[in-house]
Design a protein around this nucleic acid. Structure first.
Length: 423
RNA sequence: GCGAUCGUAGCUCAGUUGGUUAGAGCGCCGGUUUGUGGUACCGGAGGUCGCGGGUUCGAACCCCGUCGAUCGCCCCA
């Protein structure tokens, strides 16, 4: 007789439960509330797309495309991929559904994403993001509105010690000129760079700027700055963004070496990062960015669409949830205890009644009758209603405990004239 | 893909230089007690010591492999 083995969960997936699940839900609920304030419209997206949707928009040489995608062939032999991010799929939907007619379009969504990476603190193979995009808006005001919304989400989550790091990558020409200058600058000292950065020189020279390796860092300070290459338009755009943020009361700091990994970014690039040494930074380990995004004016063209300006961000729900003061799961408003087997049916009737009045109720009417009351107490409910038989007569008592939510007042009203003894 | 640390009960862990039938607390179930109650006590269920080899008279403990977890590098939310 061989025992059946329980299959294991897939590496990098999570079964979120208890306080973690409450924190997760709190993040999503807060996001939903705030996005309505900013009038972002809800969109539901497929979890998988044709592989080319991501390969063409994110950039073939990025790590995401070259080694982190969950790709597979469907039965028709077509290559499909589990989405590693939201933006590419949203861009595809914008083009294939004719959403140009709604432009400028403010969209919000959230859900699971998939990247084949080594899991660690704050990083999973299936992870979850909240996401906001403004498509078809070329004005810096769009960047400001989007960032103000991000800032408000974070503040309403009660997260502190997190700062908006802001940079501009300029327009396409500025970015190319800067990139060429960086290749020339770092190429001259190639042999003294870290092995990783020598490789970055080929694949993504901008990334050398935020290398952690001390061998690279000593050159980074004197590296060419994007500001030297900005066109007048690009500079004016960035100035408009920063002054708009100031007007909106969004605190930010300039981060000259902040670049984003994906090919499609132009102009504004930003990340919300915990301040060094803060509790938030500690909680996140080495995964410091909780929210990131930027402007992606070139993306639509890479998918065969008309040039369409757009800007967006995404934030990791798990990372945000780690920074939320997780109010542990509260006890029910009411616990109904049948302390006698003959009152179990009455208890069922009573909880049904309470729940129909919108009162969160838990029933304790199984197991040893003697232990039911104690079990109820341990769940820390607002009140306990005990049903028993005393002196041969049905009896009921209502006991209040520490927490007295509104619901309890309603319970008292409900039972004011029902013969319950209130304690 | 690379590196470090770690896998003993549902959970948190103990297990002394390798030495009989592997333990505790919490939780769970049943019971007793406490004169309306978060108590105490008794009993019970639950473990192929991650898995597979090896060394040894003897392995939870030592060695090798493997799987998994955690943290870091890379990259990213």
């Amino acid at each position: 007789m061989s025992k059946t083995k329980t299959p294991q969960a897939i590496r990098g997936t999570q079964d979120i439960f208890g306080p973690d699940a409450e924190a997760f839900a709190f993040v999503v609920e807060t996001f939903e509330r705030v996005r309505k304030l900013y009038r972002f419209r809800r969109v539901e997206m497929p979890v998988f797309e044709k592989t080319e949707v991501f390969a063409r928009s994110i950039g073939e040489t990025t790590d995401i495309v070259s080694k982190e995608m969950y790709s597979f062939e469907d039965r028709g032999g077509e290559s499909l991929t589990l989405r590693p991010e939201f933006t590419a799929g949203i861009a595809r939907a914008f083009l294939t559904n004719g959403w140009q007619q709604h432009a400028p379009l403010k969209l919000a969504t959230h859900g699971p994403l998939f990247r084949y990476e080594r899991p660690q603190k704050g990083r999973y193979r299936q992870f979850h993001q909240i996401d906001a995009e403004i498509i078809g808006a070329a004005e810096p005001q769009a960047d400001v509105e989007l960032l103000a919304m991000a800032d408000q989400v974070i503040r309403e989550l009660g997260i502190t010690d997190v700062t908006l790091h802001l940079n501009t990558l300029g327009d396409g020409d500025s970015r190319e000129a800067w990139r060429a200058a960086l290749i020339e600058y770092f190429g001259a000292v190639r042999g003294e760079l870290s092995e990783d950065s020598q490789e970055r020189l080929e694949k993504n020279p901008l990334r050398i700027l935020d290398s952690k390796d001390p061998r690279d860092r000593k050159f980074v300070a004197d590296a060419p700055k994007i500001d030297q290459f900005l066109s007048d338009d690009a500079r004016a755009f960035f100035d408009a963004v920063t002054s708009g943020l100031d007007a909106a009361g969004v605190k930010w700091t300039r981060a000259e070496s902040l670049v984003r990994g994906l090919d499609y970014y132009r102009h504004t690039a930003f990340e919300f990062i915990p301040d060094e040494g803060s509790a938030a930074a500690d909680a996140l380990g080495s995964q410091s960015t909780i929210l990131g995004g930027g402007r992606y004016d070139g993306l639509m063209e890479s998918l065969g669409g008309a040039p369409t300006p757009a800007v967006g961000w995404a934030a990791g729900i798990e990372r945000l949830a780690m920074l939320v003061d997780c109010a542990s799961e509260q006890g029910a408003d009411v616990a109904v205890v049948a302390e006698n087997r003959d009152r179990e049916t009455d208890a069922i009737a009573l909880v049904a009644n309470l729940r129909q009045h919108g009162i969160e109720t838990e029933i304790f009417a199984t197991g040893s009758p003697r232990k039911r009351f104690d079990r109820a107490r341990k769940t820390d409910p607002g009140v306990i209603i005990s049903l028993d038989i005393r002196d041969g007569e049905p009896s009921g008592t209502l006991k209040k405990h520490g927490r007295v939510p509104d619901a309890v007042m309603r319970i008292e009203a409900l039972f004011a004239n029902s013969g319950f003894e209130t304690q």
